[in-house]
């Protein structure tokens, strides 16, 4: 595992440094802006910007791994598929989040705001939010094949999850600590799913929309159900049969498109008799 980590870190060294630099630049901009505008409390966001920038470049770097066929070569090395997944989570998710959170904590301790405890909790909650999104991304990255579909899948999932997540969060009466525990546990479950799926991934499925065969229908159904629920949740006013039917149009189109990409049905168009 140690050797695998060294190898991956060496190959990705330049990109990891770039990701860190981008995070630091964003952090510097936030600190500078806060000081310039005399809004010292905004400085606490700077560590979170560091995480955001780092995670973003990390994700792009992961997409490059696939397009440059580095993933595939690593399967031939002294790294198991599961180890590769763990190493990526550690280097591309855990390190940025821990570093960003540590920077935030140091800044908070340095400026000693009046509501230090609350700000620390908010900062931890936001860092966990990043961890949740990163875990979700890890699962999507593992399941979906082509890079553009990974990106589209991530945006789609985040878009349809906003409403339900807000509803779930409100059930906890905005109590930060239970919220954080739930977020952490959910993220860990997602990462465990990603880990076990990553061990089943074979290189020939890179161009397939859903790389794990038994997840093809669940993905199509997820697109339909999630879009439909989001459409219904966004509807203002009484829900009757007309509303139910009209809110089904977009889900049918989206799940139809997903079905087309996942199963690639062969449609033969011909004018020949």
């Amino acid at each position: 595992m140690k050797q695998a980590m060294k190898l991956y870190a060496l190959i990705k060294k330049d990109q990891l440094i770039l990701a860190f630099i981008l995070g630091v630049v964003l952090m510097g901009l936030e600190v500078g802006t806060s000081l310039w505008q005399n809004k010292v409390s905004y400085i606490v966001n700077s560590g979170l910007l560091l995480i955001g920038g780092w995670l973003l470049v990390g994700f792009i770097s992961l997409l490059m791994d696939q397009s440059r066929r580095l993933d595939i070569w690593l399967y031939t090395q002294k790294i198991s598929r599961g180890q590769l997944f763990i190493i990526r989570v550690l280097l591309m998710v855990v390190v940025p989040i821990v570093t960003g959170f540590a920077v935030n904590t140091l800044i908070l301790l340095a400026i000693q705001p009046a509501d230090l405890r609350n700000l620390m909790l908010t900062s931890a909650n936001l860092a966990l939010g990043y961890f949740f999104i990163a875990s979700l991304t890890a699962v999507i990255y593992t399941i979906i094949g082509p890079n553009w579909m990974k990106v589209a899948g991530l945006f789609f999932t985040l878009a349809v999850l906003v409403q339900p997540l807000e509803t779930i969060a409100s059930l906890w009466h905005n109590d930060l600590l239970p919220d954080m525990v739930v977020t952490l546990l959910t993220s860990m479950v997602l990462l465990s799913i990603g880990y076990s799926l990553s061990k089943k991934i074979s290189a020939e499925t890179t161009d397939e929309a859903v790389r794990v065969r038994y997840l093809r229908w669940p993905v199509v159904i997820f697109v339909f159900v999630a879009t439909n629920l989001t459409s219904l949740a966004n509807h203002v006013g009484q829900v009757d049969i007309k509303v139910v039917v009209s809110t089904m149009i977009v889900p049918i189109i989206l799940s139809g498109l997903t079905f087309f990409f996942v199963f690639r049905p062969k449609i033969k168009l011909t004018w020949d008799k």
Partner: peptide, 15 residues
């Protein structure tokens, strides 16, 4: 996986 250092193979031409 420790045996993997005994085999060298790189996909051609894309790698």
């Amino acid at each position: 996986i420790r045996l993997h250092e005994q085999l060298f193979y790189v996909d051609m031409p894309e790698n």
